[in-house]
Design a protein around this nucleic acid. Structure first.
Length: 676
RNA sequence: GGCGUGGUAGCUCAGCCGGUAAGAGCGUCGGAUUCAUAACCCGGAGGUCGAGGGUUCAAGUCCCUCCCACGCUACCA
């Protein structure tokens, strides 16, 4: 193990608040790991911050009619605060809008530029003359060529999900001025990731202890072959390209965001009064760099950022990237736009942080997607925190208080069971430790809870309520052992339940959590005093979680009806425009699934006067057998288009319902009949 | 369609390189108990380890095919 550890967790994007999915993906595991290693006495820092550049933030700002600054200011301060409330213990929470970040990113860009790694390429891009700016894909609106939705964005149509490029749009307009954009050439810097292919492959193949899902994803990218990746954009929101010919351009957000980890570390060092200290964490081979992220970030942290660091030369590479999968909510995918999410600030307004730290910790999506449900949350709190842990502590402390005047009894002439049970403390400690060190946090939590189970079993087996009268010394031994277990738990549970364990230590007369290596079966001195027990974990009533579930459903329903907008009518056309369409009745003679496509069916249609081949994106809804023989309506004078190597001659008309399902327009007219 | 990851008791999941591992927690049923937040403790039931083939003396554990979920990727005239 290295001398010191640098932990980073994914920089949350500053255009929205934090929800449970974020926590489960990166921040909670990162915090558990950091708190554990800190107890171990490791030199470790946990760095994070807000990612404040990129197009979505400028879009959010426009939507609200405010400046991007207002957006990032709101979410940066909000998110920073909510992390604090939840007990995510960052050493520094920075932001990519800082001056330090600007300098750091520019330095790194320049260094690579001087090394001559970047290639420059000219591209054609849409340009808004009135606004005098190039339009990012998201800033171009127009009619979706696939479904006809008039408000499609240049990168994607939100109606049908098509991914588009801005030049695909019919009648594109600038989202800023509403003008029709022109096509203009622009020049950008690219990092030729292909040149890093072998180095990256070799590096990743050496990572035997990485999670299979992470390795798999990386290999998938590497096997596919890496291409050039733009590191600059035409935009006015971001880190300016520090070159004279780069005027009006900024660094691509995915180039500068990971550098945010470095800049935040620099700011941390400055704040500590040791401005050079950051180098120890970023440039010393004795440091282990660990990135905590969600699976959507793997390519950036395992391919792009390492390539940048490799090329730069002064930096260490990540030792591990324990990316998590996704968290579902009540059996459905999280969706902020559909209102299907639990926001952290709302949670904290009603519940204590430790309950969620535990409940979420036991279901972290470490190896596959997992599901958070309020019923499960309730069960974890009630039957594990309250019944197992809380009850063990409470029965121990209250028994001591009632029958031993709150004095810790001595251990006299211990039985084999007493000694074996005491030994379990260090045995469990070792297991827990190994789990943490291999990033198996669920296991770590379960093993920690297991010690409380051991305590309960021992308590019941030794029956102190009987020995109290028959043999007080045996009774004292039992309580001594149980109190020692409680004391050990107050440190072993520290990474997971920091607030509750501080409360417990107070009851036991302990101040600080004990350093991990000093956790023994002898943390309490016989003769010492404990305070009267107070209940650590209250149970959660059915009604309380039912309310949460209802709240979730109501919000989702509301948003559902609120967003159920009928497509606005397209602009009026005259009769000639309509007459230009030649729609004909046709009969489907044959249909087959296109081998390499998920959506396309290759359909042969009889139009009476001729037989045509038409490709149609309906394979997800209809199987070929279902549609043969159907009499459909066909746009017959549509220009041919080649897709997947096959030419399509026309379009089969479909109705699309609100769920996105497709329905045929059928006709009883014979093939070839005009439809007017 | 290609690539990646996963599909193990009602639920959430462990099971590394094939050989006493078919397991844990929750839930359920039964028993015991009263120090304790109707908690704790003990025991039972429950799985042809996604489906079908194959390799092997021996397969959740290796190979092939297929099905399902999630992610990345191409594709909706």
């Amino acid at each position: 193990m290295s001398k010191r550890i640098l932990v980073t967790s994914a920089l949350p994007y500053a255009n929205g608040p934090i929800h449970l999915g974020h926590l489960a993906g990166a921040y909670l595991p990162a915090d558990l790991y950091t708190r554990f290693q800190r107890l171990k006495g490791k030199d470790i820092i946990h760095i994070c911050g807000s990612d404040e550049h990129g197009v979505p933030i400028t879009i959010a700002a426009e939507k609200e009619g405010v400046t991007p600054w207002e957006i990032i200011e709101r979410y940066h301060t909000g998110n920073k605060k909510v992390f604090e409330r939840f007990g995510i213990d960052f050493d520094f929470y920075g932001r990519t809008s800082s001056e330090t970040h600007k300098k750091t990113s520019q330095e790194i860009f320049l260094k690579l530029h001087e090394q001559g790694v970047f290639t420059k390429k000219v591209q054609e891009q849409l340009y808004d003359e009135q606004a005098a700016m190039f339009l990012p894909d998201r800033y171009v609106k127009g009619t979706c060529p696939a479904c006809g939705h008039p408000e499609a964005f240049g990168d994607q149509c939100e109606k049908c999900g098509s991914s588009l490029s801005p030049t695909d749009l019919i009648d594109p307009v600038s989202a800023i001025t509403g003008n029709k954009p022109i096509i203009k050439e622009t020049e950008h810097w690219f990092i030729p990731l292909g040149d890093f292919q072998s180095r990256l492959t070799e590096w990743i193949e050496g990572k035997k202890d990485w999670k299979t899902n992470v390795i798999g994803q990386c290999k998938s990218w590497l096997d596919a072959g890496l291409g050039d990746r733009a590191v600059t954009r035409d935009l006015n929101w971001g880190v300016p390209v520090p070159l004279s010919e780069g005027e009006g351009k900024v660094l691509y957000v995915w180039f500068d965001a990971p550098i945010g980890y470095i800049s935040a570390t620099k700011e941390w060092a400055q704040e500590k009064g040791e401005p050079e200290l950051w180098k120890k964490y970023w440039q010393d081979k004795e440091t282990s760099l660990i990135h905590f992220i969600g699976k959507d970030n793997i390519v950036f942290h395992c391919i792009m950022f390492p390539a940048t660091l490799m090329q730069h030369g002064d930096y260490i590479l990540p030792e591990n990237v324990p990316a998590n999968e996704f968290l579902n909510l009540e059996g459905r995918k999280l969706s902020t736009s559909k209102g299907w999410a639990v926001w952290l600030d709302e949670y904290l307004d009603e519940f204590e942080p430790d309950l969620l730290r535990y409940a979420l910790g036991t279901i972290l999506p470490e190896s596959k997607d997992s599901d958070f449900s309020w019923k499960d949350f309730q069960a974890r709190v009630n039957s594990e925190l309250a019944d197992i842990l809380g009850n063990f502590i409470f029965r121990t402390i209250s028994f001591t208080d009632r029958f031993f005047d709150g004095t810790i009894p001595e251990l006299n002439n211990p039985s084999e069971l007493d000694l074996n049970t005491l030994n379990e403390i260090e045995a469990q400690k070792k297991k827990i430790e190994q789990s943490y060190q291999s990033f198996r946090f669920r296991e770590a939590i379960a093993e920690t809870m297991h010690l409380a189970r051991i305590g309960n079993r021992y308590f019941t087996e030794t029956e102190p309520w009987k020995t109290r009268k028959e043999n007080p010394q045996l009774c004292g031994n039992t309580l001594h052992v149980c109190l020692q277990i409680s004391a050990a738990l107050s440190s072993l549970f520290e990474p997971i339940l920091p607030n509750k364990m501080a409360q417990l230590r107070k009851q036991l007369g302990l101040n600080q959590p004990v350093q991990w290596d000093l956790i023994t079966s002898n943390l309490l001195k016989s003769g010492g005093n404990i305070l009267q027990g107070e209940i650590l974990f209250e149970k959660i009533e059915d009604e309380v979680v039912d309310n949460q579930i209802n709240k979730l459903k109501e919000r989702s329903d509301e948003l559902d009806t609120a967003t159920k907008v009928y497509q606005p009518l397209k602009k009026e056309i005259n009769f000639d425009d309509f007459a230009a369409l030649d729609i004909r009745a046709g009969k489907i003679l044959a249909a087959e699934k296109l081998k390499k496509s998920k959506k396309l069916l290759k359909i042969t249609v009889d139009l009476g006067f001729e037989t045509r081949t038409i490709l149609s994106g309906i394979a997800e809804f209809f199987s070929p057998d279902d549609i043969i023989g159907k009499s459909v309506c066909v746009v017959a004078n549509l220009a041919p288009k080649k897709m997947m190597g096959i030419e399509s001659n026309g379009m089969i008309l479909m109705g699309e319902d609100s769920s996105g399902k497709l329905h045929f327009l059928t006709t009883t007219a014979e093939p070839g009949s005009p439809i007017n």
